[in-house]
Amino acid sequence: MLLPDVLGTYSDAGNALILAQRARWRGVRTRVLDITATTVPPASCDIYLLGGGEDGAQVFAADWLARYPALRHAMSTTAVTLAVCAGLQILGQSMSDRTGHTYSGLGLLDFTTIAGRRRAVGEVLSTCTIPGVGQLTGFENHQGISTTGDDLPPLGWVTRGVGNGTADRSGHRGDGACTGRIIGTYLHGPVLARNPALADHILKQATGQPMPPLDLPDQRAVRRTYLPTRHPTSRGTPATDARISSVDVSQHRGVVDSGSDLAGKTIRRAP
């Protein structure tokens, strides 16, 4: 986790916890390092995470990262990086603030950001460009309008919300950016809490190992909360519809579940 002390405004540090737990539950040992501004960042990590932050913090973070070429090299050649919001903008070519002042980014992505007139705040849905990941859900809160280079796909095609705020030639609107090694997005939530398939994609890439399915009842409920339902809503149905799920951690810690209910109690009581 790079600069949790500087880019820690939007709870994106949760992404580190999620990756670590999902790896541990599959028996993969992990260590999360909080690399604060006073530390020299190691170039040997498997995964780097960058979160969102306010404008001043973003400029500080960009300067800080530029001081460590070994880190930059690792991000472009050996590691997998997840960068969110301000973190994403920093990895691009440049970003301009509301006064028109332009700052250079790390140049790892062909991605350019200017300040928009209005803040984009709210739920986002997109279809992920990484095969098998499916729909992405998240909460955006930013003022950046970003353009991706012709050869750089976004992380997702936006179906709700703003994302990058620009469209490609055929009018499709993207969110974030995605190369083989760097995944960038405007989605908070944190993004990996809402999108476990993206978390497992990152783990697969970083470890070279398959990540067997892992079922958390609350995870399914979260996906139901934020993704559009395929079926008509079951409002007004009797007391069997809603859900109670119990999670006994001792049961699921380290256990790979093949998709069945972890604790299958299902009761609902209308409020």
């Binding site: 916890l17 609350d218 995870q219 119990s246 999670v247 006994d248 951690v249 001792s250």
Partner: peptide, 12 residues
């Protein structure tokens, strides 16, 4: 979900 990742047994 947050409690699950925190290893806190709970009922939702």
């Amino acid at each position: 979900l947050r409690l699950s990742y925190a290893d806190i047994p709970h009922t939702t």
